[in-house]
């Protein structure tokens, strides 16, 4: 309001009978010189107001552009370098089976019946992939890193985003082709540096995202499931054999996946390739089985 009154005031003195009505004063003088001062003042005020508005808009946009909603179901579309694939959900394999994944690290596809604990868990050793992929289905974000390239302060920086934070998990991925790789169901982002701002943007956009994850709200706790986070089934480096479950679910346990091959549930234990996940030696603690100590 104040700005409007002020600019009017500067015009007024130029009119002949300024004491009387404003419209009358300007009435008979079509050739009056342009009030450049006024125009400049008005312009300055509008520019200033525009600046204030833009600042407010950007500030709010930064907070809200990463929130998934019906209008913005995949906020990660604003992040450079995110790889996307569509995967069928709900196809399960047993602890003795392997999946011939199409990505490294995988970010969707058939997976073990038991999910890996994803309640803010940092795994120091590489974990069996089939379990990790199941946790993605529940809405978690998995930070994988190359243990030869990410160490010290960088490693701590990543751990700080995971430890104790719901729907987060982190593990090394031996031989990873980039230092860091983020996975969410159907999404992957490979990065060089632990301080890349896209890490937080990826997590904000996709963790617990109700539109991108097949089973948002699925548990990250694993008690009674056969998965022991203190002694997780190990990562298997050798490529899976011909008997591995295919990405289209061929060979998977799931009812919805297969009619023809669905019968071969207990497959011949693949010699040496995959140690049966749920039957680890009862080292630190038993899971579902009778507790080792009395």
């Amino acid at each position: 309001m104040a700005s409007g009154t002020k600019s009017k005031g500067t015009t007024k003195p130029k009119s002949k009978n300024g004491a009387k009505g404003r419209s009358r004063s300007s009435a008979g003088r079509p050739t009056r010189p342009k009030p450049w001062g006024t125009i400049a003042a008005v312009l300055a005020v509008v520019l200033l107001a525009g600046g204030v508005f833009t600042y407010a808009f950007l500030e709010i946009n930064e907070k809200e552009q990463w929130v998934a909603s019906e209008e913005n179901p995949d906020p990660s579309e604003n992040i450079d370098g995110v790889k996307r694939e569509k995967y069928e959900s709900g196809q399960h394999v047993t602890g003795a089976q392997r999946v011939a994944y199409d990505q490294s690290p995988p970010f969707g596809g058939p997976h073990d019946q038991a999910w890996a604990a994803c309640s803010g868990v940092v795994y120091d050793t590489a974990v069996r992939t089939e379990n990790m992929v199941h946790s993605l289905e529940h809405g978690s974000v998995w930070i994988a890193y190359n243990p030869d390239q990410v160490k010290g302060g960088d490693l701590d920086k990543l751990k700080g985003k995971v430890e104790g934070q719901p729907y987060m998990m982190m593990s090394p991925w031996p031989g990873l082709d980039k230092p860091i790789s983020l996975q969410s169901w159907g999404h992957q982002l490979k990065l060089d540096k632990a301080d890349d701002t896209r890490i937080d943007e990826f997590i904000r956009s996709l963790r617990e995202n109700q539109y991108q994850n097949p089973e948002p709200g699925g548990r990250c706790d694993v008690d009674g499931t056969g998965f022991d986070p203190a002694n997780p089934p190990p990562f298997v480096a050798e490529p899976p054999g011909d008997d591995a479950v295919k990405m289209d679910g061929t060979g998977a346990v799931d009812e919805s996946a297969q009619e023809m091959q669905g019968q071969q549930v207990p497959p011949p234990a693949t010699e040496g390739t995959a140690p049966p996940a749920s039957e680890q030696p009862p080292a630190a603690s038993g899971t579902g089985a009778p507790p080792p100590s009395q």
Partner: peptide, 24 residues
């Protein structure tokens, strides 16, 4: 014609007030 600059000022002032108000 004589009113054009006043109209401009009024419109500009209104726009400015609206923008600042919305931002606030």
């Amino acid at each position: 014609t004589s009113n054009s600059s006043r109209v401009l000022i009024i419109v500009a002032a209104m726009v400015a007030v609206l923008l600042v108000g919305a931002a606030g």
